[in-house]
Write a protein that binds this DNA or RNA. Sequence first.
DNA 1: AGTTCGATCGCCT
DNA 2: GGCGATCGAACTG
Length: 192
Amino acid sequence: MTSDPPPPLPRSFYARPTVEVARDLLGKVIRHGAVSARIVETEAYLGTDDAAAHSARGPTPRTSVIFGPPGRAYVYLIYGMYYCLNIVAEPAGVAGCVLIRAVEPITGLTGDTVNACNGPGKLTRFLGITLEHYGVDVTRGPITIHMPPRKEGIAIGVSPRVGIRQSADLPLRFFVKGNRSVSRAASREPRR
DNA sequence: AGTTCGATCGCCT
DNA sequence: GGCGATCGAACTG
């Protein structure tokens, strides 16, 4: 018989400071239906003192979930053609979320391995995530996040976030050092 | 009501 | 390195 899959991470995992959640999501397994992948790159978007965050100017219809209970999915359409997936952090009433920027495929592979999910717009397509998943509780499903089957040491790299103009210097991007699935835009060396 | 522009990506030169 | 695709949220008037 097959071993029981681990349960989803509890809500308490997400009810913490956004930066902690962003770091700790590295190496975790995200699953949607038959497709699963390992999170290898994240970015923290803070509720306050972070002009780059969608929540910076208070709740709107689009961003309301960021102000609600932790462990829910904030999905939005970007550039009219891609979806980005965030996981809400901080206790309910405090804004903060973590953008999932890259994952490493575990199952669901067809053809190109790395290039299917090494970017925020690509991984949502790989995992089949769209606006209909706005507000989904990742402690319940259909999208869930789990501990990896085996404990493994991870070297974590830190850098500024990719593709933003406001608060561009804050070191809020986290990635698994040396992992080849880290997003292409992010793997560019920072200019000097 | 009209305009701007983005937490992207792939293709072009 | 540059740019177009393609859309709606947010902002301006």
